[in-house]
Design a protein around this nucleic acid. Sequence first.
DNA 1: TCTGGGGTCCTAGGACCC
DNA 2: TCTGGGGTCCTAGGACCC
Length: 428
Amino acid sequence: MPVFALVDCNNFYASCEKLFDPSLRDIPIVVLSNNDGCVVARSAESKALGVPMGAPWFQLQELAKQHGIRAFSSNYALYADMSSRVVEILRGFTPSLEVYSIDESFLVLDGLPGSLDAIGRDIRERVATWVGLPVCVGIASTKTLAKLANHAAKKALAGRKGVCDFGAMGPDELSALFARIPVAEVWGVGRRLDERLAELGIGTVKELRDAPPAWIRERFSVVLERTVRELNGVSCLDLEDVAPAKQQIMASRSFGNPVFDLDGLSESVASHTTRAAEKLRAQRHVAGAVTVMIRSNPFKPWEPQYNRSEVVPLAEPSADTRELIRAALAGLRHIYREGYAYKKAGVMLCGLEPQLRRQGSLLVDPEREQRSAALMEAMDRINERWGRGSLRPLATGFDPGWRMRRERLSPAWTTRWDQIPIVGSRSR
DNA sequence: TCTGGGGTCCTAGGACCC
DNA sequence: TCTGGGGTCCTAGGACCC
């Protein structure tokens, strides 16, 4: 029987913010989405105050003032760096590891010496000692159960010091626990499924676990059927230790201020295309089409609304930023309409295929293609060495109007020499 | 003034094929 | 009166995840 562990950082973004600023200890803090829009992470103190996940920050002003809640802009440079440090530590326990998200990893612990509970406590201690972040560990025979065990370690069985191994619990104990956990906590059960399950009298994990899989498949789908099997200890989801190549690549952002004219939209679309193209080349793929999207602000229904996208196929699949921008801007000109306050623009690259396996085409000049590849590689290397955006297409512009708001950004403590924390200094 | 940004998978339905 | 059976591919939409 396989043994999966799910290691999950507690309140990850909020914990990262607290890590380098001791004055924040015991202070309620939240981390905001891009444009300082809504709450995407809360410290334990903020949760205790009842700050809801996803709440718009401007609606929390009163509560924040009352309790001294501090808010931070998303500092992805910091979170990504801390995340990779945690993963590095986890790799010290097992080579079979899947990075599931920025703050979660699945580990396969089969055949390791020592008790699983002891390994779990080791993981917790090592991460806490080496990088200072709190994690919880859930251990079970399937991924879905490991997720649930992790949840139990955080909530229902918080007394177990952040480690929960379902394998060490008896069937009655497990059933009693499952009868206390709402079915919505199960990985793969979202709001809609929760509602539909409730109508059928399934409200707890235990009730879903004990439902006949065939019946679930009939009433719902093969996806939920798989979830039921996983809850019964039948492993259906394998560890994906090699991340599969993306099938589509998105880049989009809301604007810090509304944009009205084509020029502003063009600059943002060119910027998004540039970022998407970097990701595309990083996975060594080419794209067959570019989708460009623009929309007004749906939270202002009293203003005229406009929401449109267009797919622009490329004559030949490409990873050349210039060609992708040309296609995106052609699509943008086609769908742009005057008279709207635009709130968001984005591009999506699709029809992705590996760069190398491409079929030769009579329409492609090999010499030109080589020059393109060399230029893109040079640009990527310069930007890697000197920082993103050091060398960029002119079409991405200089207008700050549409760029996102980040008024509460903490320093890039670990990724910029000029922002590294200073512990003490000798004065003369 | 102010409301995120990515992704995946599955299903149904239509077009089209022989 | 009466109009098959099987398949593929594509797209849109809905659900989920963090």
